[in-house]
Write a protein that binds this DNA or RNA. Sequence first.
DNA 1: ATGTCAATAAGTGTTTTTACTTATTATGGA
DNA 2: TCCATAATAAGTAAAAACACTTATTGACAT
Lengths: 214, 214
Amino acid sequence: MTTILLADDHRVVREGLRTLLAQEADLTVVGEAADGREVVALARTLRPDVVIMDIAMPELNGIEATRLIVAESPSIRIVALSMYADRRFVTQILRAGALGYVLKEAAFEELARAIRTVATGKPYLSPTVAGFVIEEFVRQVSTTASKSLEILTSRETEVLKLLAEGKRAKEIALELKIGVKTAEAHRQNLMNKLEMHSIAELTRFAIREGLTTA
Amino acid sequence: MTTILLADDHRVVREGLRTLLAQEADLTVVGEAADGREVVALARTLRPDVVIMDIAMPELNGIEATRLIVAESPSIRIVALSMYADRRFVTQILRAGALGYVLKEAAFEELARAIRTVATGKPYLSPTVAGFVIEEFVRQVSTTASKSLEILTSRETEVLKLLAEGKRAKEIALELKIGVKTAEAHRQNLMNKLEMHSIAELTRFAIREGLTTA
DNA sequence: ATGTCAATAAGTGTTTTTACTTATTATGGA
DNA sequence: TCCATAATAAGTAAAAACACTTATTGACAT
């Protein structure tokens, strides 16, 4: 059973959501808040699994409220409920610690799915929002020109990945069960082949090539 | 009507796809290729709207073939058809210019949707792959919550940027007209504040924060 | 005025990176 | 079979990174 705290400054919205959520056997609304301060206080006492958070709220907005709740109880998952698919809102509230972002124009079914997804610790974004995250990813990735991961051997690729993750030659040697000198040799060969002269450059190359993430 | 060129080195796969695509009123297969060279040549003469491209092919792999086709005819959209949800493949073929990425384990319905989506110039990624892009976006955006640029001074930020670009302490000192020891001190302070212990980690952080690009 | 903080910098010592050379073994292709 | 390449590894050496401490200066806020 997933417990839910509703936060929205419009009473009708809260009542509507409460009614809809009552239809779902595995979801229970345990409280309601009409502003940012209230939701922070209630989250502390009620300790719900999930908070449905309106972004625009008096006293304290949803972003600040999210930040406070997550700082205090990281196990409480937040689903942002917003009217706008604006990238800035998405970025800000996700950075504040929300795991979900659902548009108010979405069907209730989607909100329910979002609640169940974030309850397990996984992120959920409304398709519109997810769509532009993907578009951005594709655009970003397709505009970066590059030549070759192909000129590297599989072992070199492996070493490059670990280097980019911040590992030292010693750690890499341990992880790959090879000598420290061998790991160093691989790094040296990487640098020669790629014509790079620092770990920072190798790291950026590895990220560009998708070997690891920033 | 959307015209399609099929590229896959397995004849059964091509025949299967051709049959399935024949069911769709708005899609027509205008040609088939069994290897990379062939698909590049056929794309040139047939000028299809969309190419369905297997990644693993003889002669010339799907990534190289994609690169060549897109370089020659940017209006031809490519949907990669792959067995693997591996980040490396996704990144590489998208960078080569593909707009879609569909897993072979997907239902045919999904491939059809991908074709129609990319035909309009919009990207399409299989849910597994997309989910993973989204998770990365969320993780990336939410991990910047704890330690962010705000805790750094302006000078430290400046030094961080240069370090991430691959500069050494000596070069940074020169560029900022400060002593080498000062540049080193800034780096040390950065590491302490961010709780990081290598240039690779600092570099990734700088990229996440948008101080520099990968 | 007093205290915290940012920016500057020197000193000391350890570890790692960077840059070479050389060499052995295994594998796969011409 | 011979040759090229990948993977392994050692040796040498200079440069840089990493990790501390300490100290001076100026700015800004309580």
